[in-house]
């Protein structure tokens, strides 16, 4: 377990490399998905307005 943490003395380089990669990809993914949700909600709202009122 401690070998895993210390990475043979290179923990200061290995873990940031993985940490930054995971963080950046997670933020990118969340941004892309939230953009999609916004686009979907906007179109739904506009389509609702277009519907002829009874």
């Amino acid at each position: 377990m401690s070998d895993f943490v210390t990475q043979g003395g290179f923990a200061a380089y290995v873990w940031p490399a993985y940490g930054i990669s995971a963080f950046a990809l997670a933020v990118l993914g969340l941004w892309i998905v939230s953009d999609y949700r916004k686009a979907k909600a906007k179109l739904a709202a506009l389509a609702e307005l277009e519907r002829p009122t009874p």
């Binding site: 993914g29 892309i32 953009d35 999609y36 916004k38 686009a39 906007k42 179109l43 506009l46």
Partner: peptide, 24 residues
């Protein structure tokens, strides 16, 4: 795979946005 996931979703968002613009 992750790139294609992100790319596909972004293309979908833009298609939806263009539909909204057309409606407006």
């Amino acid at each position: 795979f992750l790139f294609f996931v992100f790319w596909t979703i972004r293309i979908r968002s833009e298609i939806l946005n263009r539909r909204s613009r057309t409606l407006l």
